[in-house]
């Protein structure tokens, strides 16, 4: 059964996403697997991290005992002060996002559709949720990458033909990286580009709620 097979660790998913970040780019990381991405950027590459909490050039997370409540990212994590860090108002933080100045955002998701619709702010059974900055990021960032587990805790696919959860943005996701595969939403449908080591495209399809189109150059997860 594919459901019992070994999937990739969250860190490996983050490592794969890190390869997508452009050298010199401005990047906004969401909560969950996305926060891990900064740990895997190549050492010779410079990435400027943006937080809508009003920080640009965010450094690494603060060490225990060094936390400063006035130095946090949008996820509420404490940051280390680093040279070149700047602060600004939330209004400016969202101008950077909607104005097309942020190159990539990496977000988690509850569901992503084959066309790239993103649902990540509310679970229908709860009936309410925090939106935060996700809708502005979905609408404004030049590129939206989703990093998430392929299935939810009931082993239901988080990748679907059409989202039945309330959506955050329409046709906004350009790449989906999961613990099983790398996929690209297109107008024709969802293209399977890479599969995790030890997995066949058929096994990935079995756990995917949308029909996968095999990329001509389909390959093993490339780190």
């Amino acid at each position: 059964m594919p459901a019992d097979k070994q999937r990739l660790e969250r860190e490996v998913v983050a490592m794969r996403v890190a390869k997508e970040l452009p050298d010199g780019g401005y990047v906004n990381l969401g909560i969950g697997i996305p926060t891990l991405v900064s740990g895997f950027v190549a050492e010779d590459s410079v990435v400027f991290y943006h937080s809508e909490s009003g920080v640009l050039n965010c450094g690494p997370l603060a060490d225990e005992g060094e936390e400063d409540i006035d130095l946090i990212n949008a996820g509420g994590q404490f940051l280390q002060p680093v040279p070149g860090m700047v602060f600004f108002s939330t209004v400016d933080g969202f101008a950077m996002i909607r104005g097309g100045h942020v190159d990539v955002t990496v977000l988690g998701a509850h569901q992503v559709s084959a066309k790239g619709d993103l649902a990540n702010w509310m679970l229908p059974e709860r009936g309410v949720g925090n939106i935060g900055g996700a809708m502005d990021l979905a609408a404004g960032a030049k590129q939206v990458i989703v990093a998430m587990e392929h299935t939810d805790r009931h082993n239901h696919s988080k990748i679907v033909e059409e989202c039945d959860y309330p959506i955050t943005g329409k046709a906004c996701v350009s790449l989906i990286v999961t613990d099983l595969a790398v996929m690209q939403p297109t107008e024709q449908g969802l293209v399977l580009k890479e599969v995790a080591p030890g997995w066949t495209p058929e096994e990935v399809q079995e756990l995917t709620g949308a029909r996968l189109i095999l990329a001509p150059d389909l390959k093993e997860y490339e780190l």
Binding site: E52, V91, V128
Partner: peptide
């Protein structure tokens, strides 16, 4: 009552 709205929308409405 709770009115939930996107963060950047709140920012621009206040501005």
């Amino acid at each position: 009552q709770i009115e939930i709205l996107p963060q950047g929308v709140l920012a621009e409405r206040l501005r």
